[in-house]
Amino acid sequence: MIYLQLFFEFFKIGLFAIGGGLVTVPFLFDLSEAYDWFTVKELTDMIAIAESTPGPIGVNMATYAGFNAAGILGGIIATIGLVTPSVIVIIMICRLMNKYQCNRRVHTVLEGIRPAVMALIIFAGVELAKMALIDLSHGIVFAILFASIRFYKKSPVFYLGLSAIIGVVFKL
């Protein structure tokens, strides 16, 4: 029963992949060896497409891999398998947090974690920048976009649209 197999394999990935979406890649690599759902070559295509389409990369990967293995229903089932552990674990954590919200130590810990999350965000941003700001022209577009974001405060969606147009017009 391929649908059940898909659900459980992606459930496992959802349960053990801690961190960003690309963490799912090594797991998918194992899948490509264990089943004949997709080849390693197809996996590289999937990564490229998952990274350059909207949506979380991990979810995109699950949809694509599931589709490759068993069509449209396969894509849906693999994706549901991937997110089910998240939903269960996060709901449990929320309940715990509601219970201990007023605890002084919990407060201290959360306050200390925030600067660490800032470091994680900056670090991830720099990694992304290394891939995107490949030459001077990209750097100039970045500077102009950044200045207008600080200055005009329009919605992020507006700037994403604008940056796509800039990309096409100037052939970035």
Binding site: I121, I122, M131, A132, L133, H138, S163, V168, F170, K171
Partner: peptide, 19 residues
């Protein structure tokens, strides 16, 4: 691919501003 190259630059500018 040009559009996506532009979007990647835009995403970084947005993240920098939020930081």
């Amino acid at each position: 691919s040009y559009a996506f190259a532009g979007i990647r630059v835009g995403v970084i500018a947005l993240i920098a501003s939020v930081v």
